Computed example of a mutant assay.
Amino acid sequence: MPASNVSSGRTAARLMAAAVLLLCATAPVTGCSRERSPSAGRAASDPATSDPATSDQATAGAAQNGVQVTVVVSADAVRATFRPERPGFHLYSIGLPVDGIDGVGVPTELAVKGGLRATAAPTSDQPVRQLNIPGVAGALPVYPDGPVTLTMPVARTGSPDAQVVVSYGACSTTTCLLPVSGLVIPVRLR
């Protein structure tokens, strides 16, 4: 096959994969569906405060688009657990490029603002596996189905008001839920 046909075939396959994922995110189609969980749109309404049993920790949480996020802030770290609400769903790795691979995928992200300052990049408690999708040039780094916890070393800035900011996308083998970008979870520090 001539090189121009190979290149055109790859481009067409990439466009098809991107179109399918876009359709999955916006409308029902054969083989995928747009789903919103009962918790879609639900987020933390009040800043969480320190747990009386452990005065040096604060907890907070939010749930949106099929994933519950629980945040625990200690004196020197933030732990965010991302828990898909249904079995068979996984999250993309923190190592996925910001724009995905061939435009496919949303990296799981953890950041802090306000009363917290990151002192190192987050790490995860789960191994990364490579997921191959027809029409996408490279494998997508994803975590195993189920929960994953990201831990990020932090320092306190002196303000009692902090925000933990998360982004993520959850998918199964047939369905991708709407991604979440920049979800702010307020945390009240002591």
Rank of each mutant, 00 (worst) to 15 (best):
M1L: 10
P2I: 06
S4C: 08
S4Q: 15
V6Q: 05
S8W: 05
S8Q: 08
R10H: 00
A13K: 00
R14F: 00
L22F: 12
A25C: 09
T26L: 14
A27E: 11
V29D: 01
T30F: 11
G31Y: 14
S33H: 07
R36Y: 07
S37G: 10
S37I: 12
S39L: 14
A40E: 09
R42I: 10
D46M: 15
D46H: 15
P47Y: 02
P47W: 08
P47C: 09
A48H: 12
A48F: 09
A48M: 10
T49P: 09
S50R: 15
D56M: 00
A60H: 04
G61A: 14
A62L: 00
A63L: 00
A63K: 07
V67W: 01
S74P: 04
V78C: 10
A80F: 01
F82C: 05
F82L: 00
P84I: 06
P87V: 09
P87Q: 13
P87C: 01
L91S: 03
Y92W: 15
S93K: 05
L96E: 02
P97I: 08
V98T: 14
V98E: 14
D99Q: 14
D102S: 04
V104A: 12
P107I: 07
A111N: 02
K113F: 03
G114C: 08
A118T: 06
A118S: 09
T119W: 06
T119M: 09
A121P: 01
P122F: 05
P122A: 11
D125M: 01
L131K: 05
N132T: 14
N132K: 11
I133C: 02
A139K: 10
V142P: 00
V142M: 05
Y143E: 04
P144S: 14
D145K: 03
D145S: 14
G146F: 11
G146S: 10
V148W: 05
V148T: 10
L150W: 05
T151P: 09
M152S: 01
M152V: 03
M152Q: 15
V154R: 02
R156K: 14
R156G: 08
T157P: 10
P160N: 13
D161Q: 13
S172V: 09
S172L: 02
T173H: 04
T174I: 08
C176R: 01
P179I: 04
V184M: 07
I185W: 13
V187W: 09
